[in-house]
Write a protein that binds this DNA or RNA. Structure first.
Length: 313
RNA sequence: GGGCAGUUGGCGGAGUGGUCAAUCGCAACAGACUGUAAAUCUGUCGGGCUACGCCCUACGGAGGUUCAAAUCCUUCACUGCCCA
């Protein structure tokens, strides 16, 4: 018996564009459960700065992958891909639709297209590589990589320490090159993805992002950050990489002023949105919807719904 | 009113006769990215081109010295500090 390949609806777009707002009417209309593809909403106790949907916005729709790990744990795109797939199949088995909503491009890629397997991260190996870097210098380690995997090295900039680390890690774990692993990767589609993306004029997006930061301040992100620190979570925790937290910690420590903290928070949020736009812009499967062309989120949702319906025939 | 210091590209800030469209940092813009991805990294960055080269406008304003000035002189304006 051939298992049916599930359809997966995806709603992507940069932060602050209003994905959460449309996702509610959309999920309701689709009779879908939502898989959040957001690398920061994964973390518990980090609600305001990550712009998690409020109880109201959840509207009784099951949301997966929000609040699943503690702030001192590390989650990653690979796990998300594997766990998300399982969840998606479960949702499908319940005869409900699947709506992936999020802005973490790599998470979506991992979920939909999959990663090559056999090279989960290995912290002690990474440590060793980092030691090599500090001892011999990055360029020397880059040379090492070039010797074992010239093709991958070619695509990594000599200054990109994280990618050099990972490429070498993969090689040492598997004895194979990333370039090779990617070629041999299983590309059997396990789902039928249909992508919708949200856009709007850049200047307007930036304004919305800045206003949202102001609202986060009003809602108490500073207190949220303080609470995290009070509970003993380190400011160097991976979860603290979420926009705003680092800046707020610096403000709390008296290293920067209040205005400066807000300035940086806004600026980094804008920079992040730009990176997301660049990332999603490459994916030709995405059908774009200009938010400004719709008067209400319901109208937008209806348009996306029509597209989904047409594309999934 | 007098004295001193300063005025550089979106901002900060180098440069003190030619090799300066002007080091550098920031912002901005563009891009890369298969396991920390809200991370990490790269490029461009006065304007215009028939663009690995050419042209124009530029270093507060106006004059001047010089083969040659952001760099020297005069003067005006503005800013800061000090003495009245």
């Amino acid at each position: 018996m051939i298992p049916e390949i599930p359809r997966i609806f995806i709603l992507a777009g940069p932060t602050g564009i209003g994905k959460t707002a449309v996702s509610t009417p959309l999920a309701l209309a689709l009779n879908a459960e939502i898989i959040s593809a957001d690398s920061r909403q994964i973390y518990r106790e980090m609600d305001i700065a990550t712009a998690k949907p409020t109880v109201d916005e959840l509207s009784g729709i099951p949301h997966h992958f929000i609040d699943i790990v503690a702030p001192d744990e590390i989650y990653d795109a690979g796990r998300f891909g594997a766990d998300g797939r399982k969840t998606a199949l479960e949702i499908a088995s319940r005869k409900k639709n699947i709506l992936v909503v999020g802005g973490s491009g790599l998470y979506i890629q991992s979920l939909i297209d999959g990663f090559f397997s056999g090279a989960e991260k290995n912290e002690s190996l990474r440590e060793a590589i980092r030691r090599e870097i500090s001892r011999d210098g990055l360029s020397s380690v880059y040379e090492t990589l070039r010797n074992v995997d010239p093709e991958t090295a070619e695509n990594i900039h000599p200054n990109d320490a994280k990618r050099i680390e990972r490429a070498l890690e993969v090689y040492r774990i598997t004895g194979m090159r990333i370039s090779e692993l990617r070629r041999n990767q299983n590309r059997e589609p396990w789902c039928r993805p249909i992508f919708a993306g949200l856009t709007m004029e850049r200047a307007l997006l930036y304004r919305r992002i800045e206003e949202r930061v102001d609202r986060m301040i009003e809602r108490g992100v500073i207190g949220e950050t303080q609470t995290l620190l009070d509970k003993g979570y380190s400011s160097s925790a991976v979860a603290m990489e979420g926009l705003g937290y680092r800046d707020i910690v610096q403000y709390l420590n008296g290293d920067i002023g209040y205005e400066e903290m807000i300035r940086r928070f806004k600026q980094k949020s804008r920079n992040y949105a730009k990176r997301q736009i660049t990332w999603f812009g490459k994916d030709k499967r995405i059908q774009w919807f200009d938010v400004q062309e719709y008067k209400t989120k319901e109208a937008l949702a209806a348009a996306i719904l029509r597209y989904f319906a047409g594309a999934s025939l």
